[in-house]
Computed example of a mutant assay.
Amino acid sequence: MLYILITYDINTTSLNGQARLRKVAKVCINYGQRVQNSVFECKVNEAQYRELQHKLLKIIDKNVDSLRFYRLGENYDKKVKHIGAKQTYKVDDPMIL
């Protein structure tokens, strides 16, 4: 499994940009958890990672938007320090809905 951090900056000065922002967030939420407004932590396999990238690249406008993908590695939880509000769950922990 890969631990990926996805960040994005979508130009929302137009209605199309606002729609792209919602679409990007909707795709990302299907693969991980939102940890900040435009930041998601995801645990995916290689196929899911390629699929996720492909879906996001079809949405964004490369001339005005940007995406960043960070591979956090195996011990991601030791590399991330969280301070403040909006606590998150560990990606590997069971989730009760």
Rank of each mutant, 00 (worst) to 15 (best):
N63E: 15
M95D: 14
F69P: 06
Y31L: 00
R68Q: 13
N11E: 01
I83Y: 13
N16G: 14
K78W: 06
E74Y: 13
S38L: 07
G73K: 07
D65V: 01
D92C: 09
A19I: 15
Y3Q: 05
G73Y: 02
N75C: 05
V24F: 06
I4A: 03
V91W: 12
N11K: 09
M95E: 15
Q48R: 01
Q87K: 15
L57E: 08
L72R: 07
E41D: 08
G17D: 09
K86F: 10
L72M: 12
V24A: 08
K62I: 13
F40H: 10
V39Q: 00
K90G: 12
T13S: 15
K79D: 14
L57Y: 08
Y3I: 13
S66M: 04
I59E: 00
V39P: 04
P94R: 14
I96K: 03
N30V: 05
D9W: 03
L72Q: 06
K81F: 13
K26C: 11
L57H: 14
K55Q: 10
N75A: 07
K23H: 12
K78P: 06
Q48I: 04
K79E: 14
Q48S: 04
I29D: 13
Y31E: 01
L2D: 12
R22P: 00
S38P: 05
N45Q: 02
D92T: 11
G17P: 12
F40C: 06
T7P: 04
K23S: 11
Y49H: 09
R71H: 14
M1L: 12
L57K: 06
H54I: 05
S14C: 06
N16H: 14
V27Y: 04
Y3D: 03
Q33L: 07
D65H: 03
A85F: 13
K78F: 10
I4W: 01
V64P: 02
V64Y: 08
A25G: 14
Q87C: 10
I60R: 03
L15I: 12
Q48N: 08
L21E: 07
V44G: 03
R22E: 10
L21T: 01
Q53R: 11
L5I: 08
A19L: 09
K26H: 14
I29N: 14
C28Q: 03
R50T: 07
T7W: 02
Q48Y: 02
E46N: 12
G84L: 05
C28Y: 02
E51T: 00
Y3V: 10
S38F: 05
N63M: 06
K81T: 15
S38N: 04
L2S: 08
Q18S: 09
D61S: 11
T12R: 10
Y70D: 07
V80N: 05
K79C: 11
V80P: 04
S38T: 10
G32N: 07
R20N: 04
I4F: 04
L67N: 07
K23R: 12
I59G: 01
Y8K: 01
H82C: 07
L56W: 02
I4H: 01
G32C: 09
L56M: 07
V80A: 07
C28L: 13
G32M: 03
E41F: 14
D9I: 08
H54R: 11
L57M: 12
T13L: 15
Y31N: 01
S66Q: 11
K58N: 13
